[in-house]
Design a binder for these strands. Structure first.
Length: 892
RNA sequence: GGGCGGGUAGCUCAGUUGGGAGAGCGGCGGCCUUACAAGCCGUAGGUCACAGGUUCGAGCCCUGUUCCGCCUACCA
């Protein structure tokens, strides 16, 4: 026994922090910007600095880490660039709330002091999520960590803003935008979340300015009528061709507004008459522009009615609705109220109902940028995986509208624009200007707005690498290899990075975009704190270990499908990690030195088999990872480690290791065991870095971290073993025989402690030799006392028999014969086989199958039919024997 | 309104050019066999949502129906 025995169970806690610190102290995560090795780069989707790790982060991080660790094993120069996002609105909300708890209001403290407070908060709590990523084992190059409000990134933001402004791609203007009255800021279109709402449709009569009656309009938002500046009908609408007046009186205000004709109005909806409120509806705004209508803003930025609302001034917008309806009813102008389901926009940060509002804002003219972004994906310079997301990407970019980038908050990149207090000219400049370039006045007032957070994240792939400076980091690692993210920020972030990257770097930001699933709960619901269905990854790590969590996420990460996470599955993969641990524990009871090469050695059949399987597994894992099929790679490894290596190989090699066979096989067993363990640890390492490092460090013949190892086949000292189909076939026969005996034992209720007598029969001499060569193995794993293999297939009548390929396996049922049981067992087997034979025969009798199907398919069916028929014959003979026996014993 | 994805074993899900339906968990039966009871051995269970079509052959391709989920849209 060696002194490197492992404990009986794997304890993740004791291991994880130790190795993470070791990797960091050994600088193993560091990228080399001057290396000649093939570069591999990923920029992390920067989590919000206010963020707390959730399952989405855990999945996203795990997948990136798998890729990075895999590519390091391939010998590539890997950069995984981490960082956080300043998350303007979210962060401001968080800090505001914490200040409010102390009774402080940000307006009272002023902008500068508030921003200082946010920075203070950032320094105190901003690294929470970074620390959590480290718990996950993320092998980011932390020396290059960035923050979107860093000096360097801010410089990039400013340069980009000025450049786009000068190119005419950024402009300022008064338009209808989405306004969050709670956050008191404008929002971009995609920052509004729509939700179905049970609302009402109010029918209101607008009396003609002269004459009787008046058209009836239908609206879901009666409070906005106070800001109406016209009533519109479709010019084709016969109902409104003849009217007694061309103006109506706007109820509750007494204002006279014109009746206009515009074919935007849908004759089929409601009454065909539409109220026009240019200041509070994007469509009405467009109509207003066409007809030169004035805009009357009746809802203020605070969500309260303005002075323009007359008697309703100061009311909350929802209270105002009630009172307007009451007032209309009183005046007899409310015709009817209908139920009406429609969708309402909510702020994606605070869920308040968004108010379409007229307001001066900054916009990016998106179309020209979008065209380049579309072309890059169409031409495959960037590949989106899985491909189905390409369409969403195209559809969004093709219909994209200008991007409102100004936010009326304090935390963020302040817009580098100044207005001259004297001549009124607008100055946009990278450097803070001292005086107005037009009139030389020093009376310059800076725009108080900041930029949309996504404006700075759009630059992330190159701003983090030092742009606008020409850095060696950019030189080496841009474009990055892949972006790993979830689809929910495909538009927010991915599309915008594409636009900015192409525009400013003249090259795509990433070769691949891998879009992974969203993590949901067991019922398929999105995990959220408000519904209380979150599984906290940190809890999982504490209960099951990081490796178990990571392997679970990888195993679930099938392309194009959401992940419904259940704790049961995590438990299962925790067991898998433990299984690996124990297989190593067993190995270390025998291995004392580094294994020597297994190539060209005299090896046992199980040795050759497991090495061939190892080779197959290695190839499959590499192929799956190259294609981002993480679940397949994980599944392949699980199957190989547990069911091939542990269940079969370790059991098969035990006699050799315990010295019960030729010494040569003890040696080959040790070499094979070492080699398989060695390579398997490397294959597993990207998925479960901690346990593999822990075992690796104790494996004789290894030096330093497993992170420095080479993927199997990439290390000249260890050429990959070859595939050996013949060895695999032979081993499969042996395993089949063993399983057949175990099956009989189980079906016949024979205790595992009872050793059996088994008679094997085969017609083919070669088969017979193969079986006899593996006699010890079969005896050992099937718990057989005496075993006889003959060509004649001699066997006692009182036996239970199974057929494995062309071998009959008979277990002597001495004293414990249950004839009826064996008869029933055979009946079941025969019935099953009968079905298969019938199906195969049907195919072969079908002329069009034989003539039209490919020859190899037909041949395969033919062979199967022959084999099954032979098997059937043997089974039937066995049944006859057992029935005769039943007759005899019944007679005696 | 438009678009997309899904409906496969009791549960959660795989199934990559169409060629005899799989895994994990759970169930059942048996085992403390000298790495592991977080384990070992064996076993049951499915008209692949429904209806058509293409094909020698369909879980996979086409059409329709239905249920669920998501994205998207300015019909008041």
């Amino acid at each position: 026994m060696t002194d490197n025995l492992l404990d009986k169970g794997y304890d993740p806690k004791a291991v994880e922090t130790r190795w993470y610190q070791y990797w960091e102290s050994e600088n193993l995560f560091a990228a080399d910007e001057f290396s000649d090795a093939a570069p591999y780069a990923i920029v992390i989707p920067p989590p919000n600095v206010t963020g707390v790790l959730h399952m989405g982060h855990a999945l996203n991080t795990t997948l990136q880490d798998i890729l990075c660790r895999y590519h390091r094993l391939l010998g590539e120069n890997v950069l995984w660039l981490p960082g956080t996002d300043h998350a303007g609105i979210a962060t401001q909300n968080v800090v505001e709330r914490s200040l409010a708890a102390k009774g402080v209001d940000r307006h009272a403290m002023g902008r500068e002091t508030f921003i200082e407070a946010v920075w203070e908060w950032k320094h105190k709590y901003g690294s929470t999520i970074i620390e959590q990523l480290k718990h996950l084992g993320a092998s980011c190059d932390w020396s290059r960590e960035r923050f979107t409000m860093d000096e360097g990134l801010s410089r990039a933001v400013r340069k980009v803003f000025v450049a786009l402004y000068e190119e005419g791609l950024i402009y300022r203007g008064s338009y209808i935008i989405n306004w969050c009255p709670r956050c008191r800021t404008a929002l971009a279109d995609i920052e509004v979340e729509h939700a179905e709402h049970e609302g009402r449709l109010y029918h209101i009569r607008y009396p003609y300015a002269q004459g009787e009656g008046g058209p009836v309009v239908a609206t879901t938002r009666p409070e906005t009528m106070l800001g109406d500046t016209a009533l519109a009908v479709n010019p084709e609408d016969d109902r409104y061709r003849q009217m007694p007046a061309d103006h109506v009186i706007l109820p509750l205000t007494g204002r006279t507004i014109p009746i206009i004709r515009d074919d935007y109005v849908d004759m089929a909806f409601g009454t065909g008459a539409l109220k026009i409120t240019p200041a509070h509806d994007p469509n009405d705004f467009a109509v207003g522009e066409r007809h030169q209508l004035p805009s009357v803003k009746v809802i203020g930025d605070d969500g309260l009615m303005t002075v323009e609302a007359g008697a309703f001034e100061g009311l909350d917008r929802f209270e105002c609705r009630k009172q307007v309806v009451q007032a209309l009813e009183k005046e007899g102008l409310l015709v009817k109220i209908e139920d009406h389901a429609h969708s309402i926009g909510h702020c994606y940060r605070c869920q308040s109902i968004v108010e379409p509002n007229l307001s001066p804002q900054w916009f990016v003219k998106t179309r020209p940028l979008a065209e380049k972004a579309i072309a890059a994906v169409k031409s495959d310079r960037t590949r989106i995986i899985p491909e189905k997301w390409r369409n969403d990407y195209f559809l969004w970019l093709e219909n994209v509208r200008d991007w409102c980038i100004s936010r009326q908050i304090w935390w963020g990149h302040q817009i580098p624009a100044w207005t001259c207090g004297d001549c009124g000219s607008l100055v946009v400049s990278e450097a803070d200007p001292d005086q107005c370039p037009e009139c030389e006045s020093e009376n310059l007032v800076r725009d108080s707005d900041v930029l949309d957070t996504w404006f700075s994240s759009a630059l992330w792939p190159f701003s983090t690498m030092g742009w606008p400076d020409k850095t060696s980091l950019l030189e080496t690692f841009y474009p990055t290899s892949v972006l790993v993210t979830a689809f929910d920020i495909l538009f927010f972030w991915v599309a915008r990075m594409m636009m900015m990257g192409l525009h400013f770097m003249a090259e795509v930001p990433f070769r691949h975009v891998y879009i992974h699933a969203l993590v949901r709960d067991e019922d398929g619901k999105k995990m959220s704190k408000s519904t209380g269905n979150v599984i906290d990854p940190i809890d999982v790590i504490n209960n099951y270990g990081t490796d178990a969590l990571r392997f679970t996420l990888a195993a679930f990460a099938a392309q194009g499908r959401d992940i419904k996470l259940s704790e049961k599955r995590i438990e299962g993969y925790r067991n898998f990690v433990n299984k690996i641990w124990n297989s190593a524990r067993f190995a270390f009871m025998h291995i004392e030195d580094a294994g020597t090469t297994v190539i060209g050695k005299n090896l046992s059949l199980p040795d050759r088999w497991i090495l061939s399987r190892l080779r197959q597994t290695t190839d499959s894992v590499a192929e799956a990872l190259d294609d981002y099929r993480f679940n397949e790679a994980a599944g392949t490894l699980y199957q190989f480690v547990w069911h091939e290596f542990c269940d079969w190989y370790l059991e098969a090699v035990k006699p050799a290791l315990f010295g019960k066979t030729d010494e040569i096989f003890r040696q080959s067993g040790l070499d094979t065991l070492w080699r398989v363990l060695h390579d398997t640890l490397i294959l597993l390492h990207p998925f479960i870095p901690f346990v593999t490092e822990e075992i690796w460090q104790k494996l004789p013949g290894t030096e330093g971290s497993i992170m420095k190892a080479r993927f199997p086949g990439k290390d000249p000292d260890f050429p990959a073993p070859e595939l050996e189909p013949a060895a695999e076939a032979d081993m499969e026969l042996v395993m089949g025989i063993i399983t057949a005996v175990r099956n009989i034992r189980g079906e016949m209720n024979i205790s595992p402690s009872v050793a059996l007598s088994v008679f094997l029969g085969a017609d083919d001499n070669g088969t017979l030799e193969k079986i006899m060569a593996q006699g010890d193995l079969i005896r050992n794993l099937a718990r057989i006392d005496t075993m006889e293999a003959t060509k004649s297939g001699r066997r006692p009548k009182a036996s239970a028999t199974a057929i494995v390929r062309d071998v009959s396996v008979s277990v002597l049922l001495e004293g414990v014969i249950d004839v009826s049981k064996e008869s029933a067992r055979l009946d079941k087997e025969i019935a099953k086989l009968e079905k298969e034979i019938t199906m195969l025969a049907k195919k072969l009798e079908n002329d069009s199958f034989v003539s039209k199907a490919p020859a190899d398919v037909v041949e395969k069916v033919r062979v199967q039919h022959v084999e099954n028929s032979e098997k059937m014959e043997k089974l039937k003979k066995n049944r006859q024997t057992i029935q005769e026996l039943a007759a005899e014993t019944g007679a005696s």
